[in-house]
Every structure is written in structure tokens, then in C-alpha cells.
């Protein structure tokens, strides 16, 4: 963090740090992802072999993590837009942060089974 900062922690600052970290993470993923998709121009086999990595159980957990990062960044991004454009936004920024976290928890719970069930089956048989 730059020296002499005026930030004092709490929701406003931590959401900003998390927004930054998730943004960078998604950016690096996108770089890798456009390269892996480009393998469709090499051969069907090259593409299919690489996409197998996405189906590995450990990688699936990372995909769930990527979804966590994107959902946070997206919901918090909408909160930033509300703070900037809605006249009452700055007053309710803290409440909106907790609404974002609430929606995030619900969506992550809902996404767990569809994203992770195949990995679970593979690891524990059946």
C-alpha cells in the first residue's frame, strides 16, 4: 500500500482491495483462456486434450474459486456504479456492501452442486 495513505480500513477499503485482487485474477485467467480456446485452430485433438484439464477435480475447485472472484467483482462493481451514479449511493454504500455479500453467499451456495458434483463423483466413485 502506498505510504501516507488516508485509508482507514473497514468495508469501504476492504471491498476496494478485494475488487482489485479479483480484477487482476480474472484478467490473468482471460489471457490463458483465449490461448486455450485458440487451440481449436490447431486441431480438435489439441483442443480436447487441453480442455481435459478443466475437468480435473482439483481444477474444478479452482473454477469454483474463479466463479467466486467473478461474482464478487461483478456484484461489487454494480455497487460502485450505484455509489457513483445514484444520489443516495454514497450514504448507503456500507449497507450495499452487506447486500452484495449476502447475494454472493446465496449464489455461491447455489453454484456449488452444479459446478462441483462431477468432481465429487470422480474422487469418491459412483
Amino acid at each position: 500500500m502506498p505510504a501516507g495513505t488516508l485509508y482507514r480500513g473497514r468495508e469501504g477499503m476492504w471491498s476496494w482491495v478485494a475488487h482489485r485482487v479479483t480484477g487482476v485474477l480474472i484478467f490473468f485467467f482471460l489471457f490463458a483462456h483465449v490461448i486455450d480456446t485458440a487451440l481449436v485452430r490447431v486441431s480438435p485433438e489439441a483442443y480436447d486434450e487441453t480442455i481435459e484439464i478443466y475437468k480435473n477435480p482439483i481444477v474444478s475447485v479452482m473454477e469454483y474459486g474463479l466463479v467466486a472472484a467473478i461474482l464478487f467483482h461483478a456484484l461489487n462493481g454494480l455497487r460502485i456504479v450505484a455509489v457513483d451514479f445514484w444520489e443516495k449511493g454514497p450514504r448507503y454504500q456500507k449497507q450495499m456492501f452487506w447486500i452484495v455479500m449476502g447475494i454472493w453467499v446465496v449464489l455461491m451456495a447455489g453454484a456449488a452442486y452444479p459446478i462441483l458434483n462431477h468432481a465429487f463423483r470422480e474422487v469418491f466413485g459412483s
Partner: peptide, 23 residues
């Protein structure tokens, strides 16, 4: 992006069905 993720990871078997034929 969220639409893309729903299609790629949630619907219809999610990531397990992705491959050259799918694309």
C-alpha cells in the same frame, strides 16, 4: 460473463461436455 459461466459450467453437465464438437 455470468451468462457465459452459466452456459459453460452449470447447464447440461457443465464443463464435462466441453470439447471441439461442442465449440
Amino acid at each position: 460473463v455470468i451468462g457465459h459461466l452459466i452456459i459453460q459450467l452449470i447447464i447440461d453437465g457443465g464443463v464435462t461436455r466441453i470439447g471441439f464438437a461442442f465449440v
